[in-house]
Structure formats: structure tokens, C-alpha cells
């Protein structure tokens, strides 16, 4: 009898430990993150008419505050640095699952990373890690990491183990310090870069990239198609934008992306609309002044859309 009690006690302590460690990881990893926009989506706290989706260009180039000022529509930026179209589709999925659906989605198209694999542009699963308790996010992370569904549903620690290092960082160093270009999120979700580009601005060519159909990332293409389909099914307007660039556009990319976009949706090319170096923080990203100016431009086009 004593032996059995010992084993039952062992199992009970193990289960308690599993729940406790998982809980600690969950809480600390959320506290460690400076950028909490995913949490805001999950808690239905984003009530915007216009939502901006994309990678770092989306995050840095669009000022939702300026768009709101010019259009009267509330706006929120959900751009994420270094993210690919598959991640953008996931963000849209989360938005669509929340209580407040937007009226318009602005999808910022990265030249050429929207359709082609580019180093450093990935599915930003790390951004989703702290919210792994959400069943949809949990499923996404499991499939990305090859984690077993059954085991994640049984063990809280195993489910939360992706947050181990971040939880530890919170314990050791507290909340992460925001990065001026990637995570310094303002109340509208955007990261507007104050500094003007420190580098010499030289217009460089991007014409030598091989944009053959064979090299196209089909998963990216499918995600862009899915974004259109999902917006259509939810009666959400969708606007594709090629943002201003301080470099020449990749030859043939515009035609390639146009072929993926349904004719009912509009692709607006702003790539040559700003040419002064003072508006850019580097070759591909606008600074705060540039973002403000560009947001005025795009606001004028938003006004033309029937929302």
C-alpha cells in the first residue's frame, strides 16, 4: 500500500510540476515581450477599420495615426519585421477570428520577397510563441516545429517549452528593450523610425534577380491567394501596395505579383512616389517623415475605395 501511495504521490507531484512550470513560462514570456500586438488581437482589443499587414516595410512605412487623420477611419499596423506571406496569412487569420473585423486590409507587397525566398524573411513563429495557449497558434507552432499534437495537449510544460529561454530572460533581465526599427511599437502598432538614414543613399539596381516562375515560392503564392479569398469571404476590402523604395524595383516583379492578384483587387505602385533621401532610413524603409508623407498619399487612395 505504501508503495502505491509513493507512486501516486510521484505522479501527482509530476502533474503539478508540469502545470506550474508551464504556467510560469506562459506568464513570464508574455511579460518579456515589448511588442504585445498579438495579445491585443487575441483579447479583441484591436478595433480598427483599416489593418495593415506585411513585413518590416509595412511596420515602418505606414503611419496609422496619419491615415486616421486623413480618412477618418481608425487604423492599426500589424506589420512584422522579417516575416513572409505565410506569416501574414496567419496574422489575417487571427484578425478574422477576433471579435472586430476590419473594413479594409492593406497588404504591403515586398519586392521580391512576397513571391520569392529571400534570406532573413521567415515565418516568425517566435512572435507567436508566448500565445501558444491559443489552439489556433498552438496548431501552427506544432506544424512548424514538428511537435506532437497529442503531447502538447497533454503536457503544459511541453506545450510552453518554446517560451523557456524568453521566460528565463525575463527572470534575469526583465522586459526586453524595444529595438528602434523592429519592436518599438507605438499605440497604433507602427514602428516609425526617427533617424534619417546614416548610410550614404545610393540607388542600387535590383534587376539581376532571377524571377522565373520556376523559382517562385509556391507556398508564398498560395498564401497571397488565400489572403484574397479570406478577405472576399468576409466582405473585407483588400488593397495591395508596393511601398516607396530608394532603389530600383526588381525587373519584372510588378508583373509577376500582378498575375497573382485577382482583378477585383487593386495593386497600387508607390515605389517611385518618394525619391528624396531624407524620407528614407535605408534603401528599403521609410523614416518617420517618409511614413507620414506616404500615409497621406495612401489616405487619398483609401478615400476612393467604397468602404
Amino acid at each position: 500500500m505504501k508503495k502505491y501511495i509513493k507512486y501516486i504521490l510521484f505522479i501527482l507531484i509530476f502533474i503539478s510540476g508540469d502545470i506550474f512550470i508551464g504556467y510560469v513560462l506562459s506568464v513570464f514570456s508574455k511579460k518579456q515581450k515589448y511588442d504585445n500586438r498579438i495579445e491585443l488581437i487575441l483579447e479583441n482589443k484591436i478595433e480598427a477599420d483599416v489593418v495593415i499587414i506585411g513585413s518590416s516595410e509595412a511596420l515602418n512605412d505606414y503611419s496609422p495615426e496619419e491615415i486616421k487623420l486623413n480618412t477618418g477611419l481608425s487604423c492599426y499596423n500589424l506589420g512584422q519585421s522579417g516575416s513572409n506571406p505565410i506569416f501574414h496569412e496567419t496574422i489575417l487569420d487571427l484578425v478574422l477570428k477576433s471579435a472586430h473585423k476590419p473594413k479594409l486590409v492593406i497588404y504591403n507587397v515586398d519586392d521580391y520577397a512576397a513571391l520569392y525566398t529571400k534570406s532573413g524573411i521567415i515565418f516568425r513563429k517566435d512572435v507567436l510563441y508566448p500565445y501558444v495557449d491559443n489552439p489556433f497558434i498552438c496548431k501552427k507552432i506544432n506544424s512548424e516545429l514538428g511537435k506532437n499534437e497529442l503531447a502538447t495537449s497533454i503536457s503544459y510544460t511541453y506545450r510552453q517549452n518554446v517560451n523557456f529561454i524568453n521566460a528565463l530572460k525575463y527572470l534575469l533581465f526583465g522586459k526586453e528593450k524595444p529595438d528602434a526599427r523592429t519592436t518599438n511599437i507605438n499605440s497604433f502598432g507602427a514602428t516609425l523610425v526617427d533617424k534619417k538614414g546614416e548610410d550614404e543613399h545610393t540607388v542600387f539596381e535590383m534587376n539581376n534577380i532571377n524571377l522565373s516562375v520556376l523559382r517562385m515560392n509556391l507556398d508564398y503564392r498560395n498564401s497571397i491567394l488565400n489572403i484574397q479569398k479570406k478577405c472576399s469571404e468576409n466582405n473585407i476590402q483588400l488593397l495591395f501596395c508596393l511601398p516607396p523604395q530608394f532603389r530600383k524595383s526588381t525587373k519584372g516583379f510588378k508583373n509577376r505579383i500582378q498575375s497573382v492578384i485577382d482583378s477585383t483587387y487593386q495593386l497600387i505602385d508607390y515605389s517611385n512616389s518618394l525619391t528624396e533621401a531624407a524620407y528614407f532610413s535605408d534603401q528599403e524603409h521609410l523614416n518617420k517623415d517618409g511614413a507620414t508623407y506616404f500615409s497621406k498619399l495612401i489616405s487619398a487612395d483609401i478615400k476612393k475605395i467604397k468602404i
Partner: peptide, 20 residues
């Protein structure tokens, strides 16, 4: 002894977050 078991088991659970 049980401390060692727990440490090993939870370490495995914490670190097995990548594709096998």
C-alpha cells in the same frame, strides 16, 4: 533520486522544442 528523475524529465520536456 526523485529530484534527479524530475530534473531529467522536465529538462527533456523543456528542451524538446525542435523537430526530432
Amino acid at each position: 533520486r526523485f529530484g534527479i528523475y524530475f530534473f531529467a524529465a522536465f529538462s527533456i520536456m523543456l528542451m524538446s522544442n525542435i523537430v526530432e
